[in-house]
Structure formats: structure tokens, C-alpha cells
């Protein structure tokens, strides 16, 4: 094997070549398809998670459904949706939203459960209205647990988008298919590096957000 793992000139030529498969465009698509599901997932998971925390009977069925969702192969979901939504980003975004929910709903419920009972009681005793109590007392305490879930959801989502390449919508995943079909390492390595880098950046942003949002929880870790 004399083919090097990375041909730098390939990167230079393909970073921004004006076409639909230039690395820059793929990266942009990847970001959209990875983050829309996480944000949508968070927006849905907060009310659902709160409902599950409040009404205990909701919890078991929801967790059951989320466990099934979690075990669905992403590729299968993409393929089946392909017949409905066609070759659009939506085909990837919908399943990834479901996967995010499977991680985020339990995180919200656990977060609400992490609020110590005496804290909740004393908030009630001090006369907090339910809505204020939720936003001022309970959610802030739940933030670290929810954000831990968000880290997992974001990182997994970024990684899973690339599977979409098998149905023609995979952002950086296209580079894997391309490299495989041409037996050419460079796009594959570039794809992997960019996906991991993107995930690390997202992870660091969430960690930074957590530090800003919960200055009291700064641990000596």
C-alpha cells in the first residue's frame, strides 16, 4: 500500500470547490442535520419530561417507548422514511429527533428527580407559584443532569448523521461513501476527523454553557 492516509492536496482542492460535495458544503449540511434534531428534541423533551416527572403513570410507558426507539437501527428508519419524505434533510432529521428524545426525556425526568425534596418543599413554603417554582428553583437544579443528557444526545446525533449518506443525505458521511467507492483513504479520514472535531466543539460548548448556567455546581472534577 503506497497510498498515504491523507493527501493534503485533495483537501485543498475539495474544501470549497463550488460543487454540492465540497467539504465545506457537506460540513454545513452536517451541522444542520445534526443540530436541528437536538434542539427540536430538547424543546419536546422538556414538557414531556416534566409531564412524566409530575404524573408518574406516564413515566413507565414513555420510557418503554423510548427504549424501543433507542433500539431502532437508524439506517432502517432513514430507509423507510425515504419512501415518505423523499431525498430531503427531513428524512434524516425526523429519526434523529426521535433518538434525541430517547436520551433527553429520561434526562429531564432524572433531572427533576434530582431536585431534593426539602428544596421543593421549602420553595412551596416560601410561596412560590408552581410556574415560578419550576423556572426559578426546579429547572436550575435539574440543569446539570439535563445537560449531561444533552451532551450525549448532541455527540450521538453528530455521529449518526453520517449514516444518512447511505440514503444520499449524510453530510460528511458522503465522504465515507465516496472514499469507499474509490478505495481512497483521504475523504474517509477527513470525514472522521471533522465529525469528531465537530462533536468535541459541541461538547465543549455545552460544558461551557453548564458552567455559565450553574456556577454553584462547579465541581472539583
Amino acid at each position: 500500500m503506497d497510498e498515504p492516509l491523507v493527501r493534503w492536496d485533495w483537501i485543498a482542492r475539495n474544501w470549497d470547490n463550488g460543487g454540492p460535495t465540497s467539504v465545506k458544503v457537506l460540513l454545513e449540511n452536517h451541522i444542520v442535520m445534526a443540530f436541528v434534531p437536538v434542539i427540536a428534541g430538547l424543546l419536546i423533551a422538556i414538557p414531556l419530561g416534566l409531564a412524566c416527572a409530575r404524573y408518574r403513570w406516564l413515566y413507565q410507558p414513555t420510557v418503554g417507548i423510548m427504549n424501543v426507539v433507542y433500539s431502532l437501527p437508524s439506517l432502517a428508519l432513514f430507509s423507510i422514511l425515504l419512501s415518505v419524505t423523499g431525498l430531503t434533510q427531513t428524512t434524516v432529521i425526523i429519526p434523529l429527533t426521535l433518538f434525541s428524545l430517547a436520551v433527553l426525556i429520561p434526562a429531564v425526568v432524572d433531572g427533576m428527580r434530582s431536585v431534593p425534596d426539602h428544596v421543593r418543599q421549602s420553595a412551596v413554603a416560601m410561596g412560590f407559584q408552581p410556574m415560578r417554582r419550576l423556572t426559578r428553583v426546579e429547572l436550575p437544579i435539574a440543569v446539570p443532569v439535563v445537560l449531561a443528557g444533552l451532551r450525549v444526545a448532541a455527540v450521538s446525533s453528530i455521529s449518526l448523521v453520517s449514516v444518512g449518506a447511505l440514503i444520499g443525505q449524510g453530510g460528511l458521511g458522503y465522504l465515507f461513501i465516496d472514499g469507499w467507492q474509490r478505495q481512497f483513504y483521504t475523504p474517509i479520514v477527513v470525514g472522521i476527523v471533522l465529525v469528531v472535531a465537530l462533536a468535541l466543539v459541541a461538547d465543549l460548548v455545552i460544558i461551557a454553557a453548564q458552567r455559565l448556567l450553574t456556577p454553584w455546581a462547579r465541581r472539583r472534577a
Binding site: 455527540v155 455521529s159 460528511l172 472514499g179 472522521i192 465529525v195 462533536a199
Partner: peptide, 18 residues
């Protein structure tokens, strides 16, 4: 460990096969 979660399975798979 968190970074490892980000490793794209498909990419790794084709790379290792090649």
C-alpha cells in the same frame, strides 16, 4: 469516552476494511 461516542461507525468501518 465522550469523544469516542462521536466516532462515526460508517466511516470507521470503511476505513478499517480498506
Amino acid at each position: 469516552a465522550n469523544a469516542a461516542r462521536a466516532l462515526p461507525t460508517l466511516g470507521l468501518l470503511v476505513l478499517v476494511v480498506l
